[in-house]
Computed example of a mutant assay.
Amino acid sequence: MKLGLRLPQRLRVDLQHDLVEAAKTAEAAGYSSLWTYEQLLFAETPIEPYAPPNVPWPESGRQTADPLAVLTAAAVVTEQVRLGTAVLIAALHTPLQLAKQLATIDQISGGRVVAGMGAGWATDGLQAAGATRADRGRFLDETLDVFEAVWGPDLVNFRSPRVIINNAAVLPKPVSKIPVMLAGGAANLGRSGSPKAMERVAKRADGWLPLLTTPGPAGAAELHANWDRIREMASEYGRDASRMEMVVVGNITFTDRLAGPDRSAFIGTLDQIMEDIHTAAEAGANELILDLNLQDSFTNTQQMLETAVEIRERAPAS
C-alpha cells in the first residue's frame, strides 16, 4: 500500500514558504502522492457539527487555503508524486472552469493530477456558493458530464441545465485522461454515505475515496466488504473493476495517552495510528492519504513534516 500526504492548508501555515517545503519534503521522504482538501469558509456557529453527534470544528479549520492554488505550487516543485484533490466539492464550482483548472494543472505537472470529487455536506459552504444540499448530487453528476465532454476531442458540444457549449474548442486538454475518484458511498462512512453514492462510484469513477472510521479487523472487514460491493456493481455496468483504486483517507488526531477501545480510527497515539495504517492495508487499500491538518497542537508546519517523515519511515514495519 502506498502512502499519500495532505498538504498544509490550515492556520499557522506560511503559504509563501511552507507549501514548497512540504511538497519537497514529502516527495523526498517517499510519499507517493500529495493531496489537498476543500473548505470554503468557517462559520462561527456552523449549521452542522464537524462530525456526529456533536464534534466541534477544529480551530485550525478557520483557514483552508485554495486547494487548486496549493496543488499548482506543489506541481512546480515536484517531479514524481501524484497530485490529487480529496476532495473538491462540485457544487462550489462552475463545471467548465473547474475542468480547465484541472487540465491546466495536469499540463503543468506533466500528467500527475487525480481529480477527487465529492457532493459535500456542509450547508454553510453550499449556501455561500449559491447551492443547497438538494443540489449536491445533481451538480456532481453534471460536473462529471462536463469533464468527460471538455477533456475529450474538440470541437465540444454539450448541454445541461447550467452549461451550454456549442461547437467550441476547450483548451488546454489534460496530458492524458485524468483519473476521477469519488468520495462517500457506504453507511458506515458518515453523512455522505448512501446507496446512490456507492452506485455513482461504481458507474462513473476510476476509484473510491472512503474514510476509515472503525479501527482493527472489524474496520478492515467492513471497508473491504463495501469495496467488494462497489467493484461488483462496476462489473455489472460492464466496467473493468480491476482498474479501479481504493484510496483511503485517514484524518489523524493524536492523543497523549492510549485512546480507549471505542475510539475511531486515526485517533490515538502514534502507535495506534500505525495500527490503523495496517488496518487500511488489510482492507485492500491501494493507497492511504494521511491528513495532519487537524492537529491544533502543531504550532508550525515543521512539526507536521517531522511527524509525516516519522510515519513514512515506520510504515513499512506496520
Rank of each mutant, 00 (worst) to 15 (best):
M181N: 00
A129G: 12
K203Y: 01
R239E: 09
D206K: 08
K173T: 03
G219R: 09
E148K: 13
L211Y: 13
G111E: 03
G130Q: 06
R112G: 01
D145S: 12
W208I: 10
R239P: 04
E142I: 03
V170Y: 01
E142V: 07
D135K: 12
F147Y: 14
G120C: 07
K203H: 05
A220L: 13
Q127A: 05
A129Y: 07
R159E: 15
A168G: 09
H224L: 09
G238E: 07
Q127G: 00
W227S: 03
A197K: 08
M181F: 06
A197W: 05
A169T: 14
A218T: 11
K173C: 05
F139W: 07
P217K: 10
A220C: 12
S235N: 13
A119P: 01
P195K: 12
G238V: 10
D154L: 14
A205T: 10
M233Q: 14
M198D: 02
A197Q: 12
D124F: 11
K177Y: 08
L212H: 00
F158I: 02
Y237R: 11
R204N: 13
G238F: 08
L212R: 02
L189V: 13
E142N: 08
G116W: 00
A218H: 09
L211R: 06
A221M: 06
P210Q: 06
G238M: 10
F139M: 15
L189I: 15
V113E: 02
V170G: 01
R159P: 00
P215S: 11
G130F: 03
R191Y: 14
L189C: 01
V113D: 02
D145H: 04
A202E: 11
R138W: 03
V146I: 10
A202T: 11
K177S: 14
R112S: 01
W151C: 04
A168K: 12
P179F: 11
A221L: 10
H224R: 15
S192K: 04
W121I: 09
G185H: 09
R133P: 00
G219Q: 04
L155F: 05
A128F: 08
D206N: 15
G190A: 12
K196F: 06
G118M: 09
A187F: 08
K203C: 00
A129W: 10
D228C: 07
M117I: 13
P153L: 13
D228E: 13
A134N: 12
D240C: 03
D228T: 05
M244L: 15
E142Q: 07
F158G: 01
G219L: 06
N167L: 00
T143P: 04
F147P: 02
T213Y: 06
A119E: 07
A129Q: 09
D145I: 03
A221E: 15
S194Q: 05
D240Y: 04
S235Y: 00
S235W: 00
G137Y: 05
A205W: 07
S192D: 10
I165W: 08
L171A: 12
N188Q: 11
A115Q: 03
I165K: 04
F139G: 00
L155N: 02
G130T: 03
T143G: 06
A225R: 15
M233F: 05
M233T: 14
G219V: 07
S192V: 10
G118W: 01
G238H: 11
